[in-house]
Design a protein around this nucleic acid. Structure first.
Lengths: 154, 154
DNA sequence: TATTGTTATACTCTATAACTATA
DNA sequence: TATAGTTATAGAGTATAACAATA
């Protein structure tokens, strides 16, 4: 067949102004990232939010749920569900905070520490796939630029 | 006030390895972007997916639903819901495609054209807020780098 | 045989509102 | 009065599986 048609059997479409929009690019990237993350960690039934929670609890033993909510931009009620999930799996524990008895101090269990040790290399592999087409400078610039997009982080 | 304490009454937490992860940064940015987008376009009850669909249909009159699904990384069944929503609002129309009678050719209505003309400046404002702390070079680099993260786009 | 659109269905993630206990 | 955690509930967005029509 002559003419400008491409090899793909799918229509070649015009993305209009979308490719120039940060919002569009971030959204599309996030869909791809989430798929790769969950596929790569499927054996551990792990999502980015659950993993991030484990990392934050490890880095801040006794972290309070409200602080976790602020850190991950989640509602307090959503954090209850997240901690419930991890607690049911035996990966974290809630204890009443000594300095403020309204709060829970969340800590990793030994099992939680072990899982996190296993997960980190998998996440490193996942990240390596994401940035495989970026050089070191592009990668650093990307992280820095993204960080400036949500300046409401404390 | 002396000392390194900050003004915030909230705990200052250690983000551990999260800030270095592309996946984390993209996710946090996306949450912030989605909130700003929907707040800014609340009067039009518009989401990024609905807006993106209008843009793609405008740029590709007669676009087929399956192509839209590929372009936005959505399932075909999800696209049915998206087009239903826009059709019920009178912004797009489905017609049977002449070249392939399995497919629908989706087009903007006049109302859809008008709405899109109104929305574009609002999205431009939204985008300007997102990148307000980035210079032009950072902005260009960010778009390019994000585009390389989901290379499965056709 | 494969693809398109559709339907029915269910799942995940998230938020809102109201409650309680503490501060 | 305000905040932390919880519960019940609901909504948005998404996908899976099965189907009819068409290629």
């Amino acid at each position: 067949m002559a003419g400008p048609e491409r090899n793909s059997r799918h229509a070649r479409i015009d993305y209009g102004l979308l490719p120039g929009l940060i919002g569009y690019q971030v959204r599309q990237a996030q869909i791809a990232i989430f798929r790769d993350f969950t596929a790569n960690l499927a054996d551990h039934d792990m999502t980015p939010t659950l993993f991030g929670t484990l990392v934050l609890v490890e880095a801040n033993p006794g972290l309070k749920q409200a602080d976790l909510a602020r850190a991950l931009q989640l509602d307090r009620s959503t954090v209850v569900t997240v901690i419930d999930t991890l607690e049911h799996r035996g990966l974290v524990e809630r204890k009443r905070a000594v300095d403020d008895r309204r709060s829970n101090a969340v800590t990793l269990t030994n099992a939680g520490e072990r899982i996190l040790t296993m997960l980190k290399p998998l996440v490193t592999d996942h990240e390596a796939r994401l940035v495989k087409d970026l050089d070191a400078g592009e990668r650093t610039a990307l992280v820095a630029a993204l960080g400036k997009i949500f300046p409401d982080r404390r």
